[in-house]
Design a binder for these strands. Structure first.
Lengths: 141, 141
DNA sequence: CTTTTTCTTGCAACCGGGTTGCAATCTACC
DNA sequence: GGTAGATTGCAACCCGGTTGCAAGAAAAAG
């Protein structure tokens, strides 16, 4: 994704494209997997942790990215594919590798529908499978 | 559950029943819902946080309790029902109330089976629905 | 083009859950 | 009772996340 496309995407989501915001967006596009705050800190040495955090918070509010927990309490951020309104309902499963600490989107597996007992209201769903990814499995065998 | 039963349960799991361990166990039985470390700190003012933590860690290792994350990165502990070997496979869903920060066991809803893509190995599953519990829903309406 | 206002950023400090080193205490066994 | 090992409390630390603040950059007003 080139500079033009990034600027356009941020504009569509209603975000003023500062240099840092473009940097964070680019770092996310350049990674094939979702990134955590600390992963982005390593990738963006010019930026302060708090600045990255604030950009990510802004991105979350504007549905530029989605966040999910990796099952240890660490938030991972993935770019939202859609251009306009984003439909969280048909969201997919994530896998967290306990060996390399990377997370994976399992796009093909979408979240099962759950009927909650009477009185419970759902705001969001956290569903992550933890284990070992193919890469790590291969490397230490 | 009385003192006798607690001692017996700990013994069956291979844990020497010190006073503190019994205290933690009792606190867990007396709560109808899973507890977090900080919840137990409030309930057990005589014990130090680190002691509670070490007891819980021991309990986890001996399958006296199970832990799950509430979707904010905080671990909640629930007593394991079984006396002997505990079968994590038929584990159930949890609900976390974002309003009162309590978690609920939805015993009736067990985790769906997921077929992972080739090469991925699952060690554990983290599946929590976040939202508002009946109690909170009722209280602010 | 300068001034004013607003937004954005880096720094440092803080927060809370979790974790550890260590010395003091307790327990079990001789 | 005396000693070895287990258990505990305290203080300190770790790490991800978060905030207050003052400096710097950008946009709006004059």
């Amino acid at each position: 994704m080139n500079q033009e496309e990034i600027l356009e995407r941020l504009d569509k989501k209603g975000i003023k494209p500062t240099a840092n915001r473009v940097l964070v967006y680019r770092a996310l596009t350049e990674s094939s997997r979702p990134q955590s705050l600390s992963g982005l800190e390593d990738a963006l040495v010019t930026m302060d942790k708090s600045s990255i955090f604030r950009v990510l918070t802004l991105f979350l509010e504007h549905d530029v990215v989605h966040g999910f927990e990796d099952g240890r309490g660490v938030l991972h951020y993935e770019l939202c594919g859609s251009d306009g309104e984003c439909n969280m309902a048909d969201s997919h499963l994530h896998f967290y590798c306990e060996s390399c600490h990377e997370s994976y989107c399992l796009e093909d597996i979408h979240l099962p529908h759950i009927d909650l007992p009477q009185g419970f209201t759902s705001h969001s769903v956290s569903f992550v499978i933890k284990g070992e990814c193919p890469r790590c499995r291969a490397s230490h065998r």
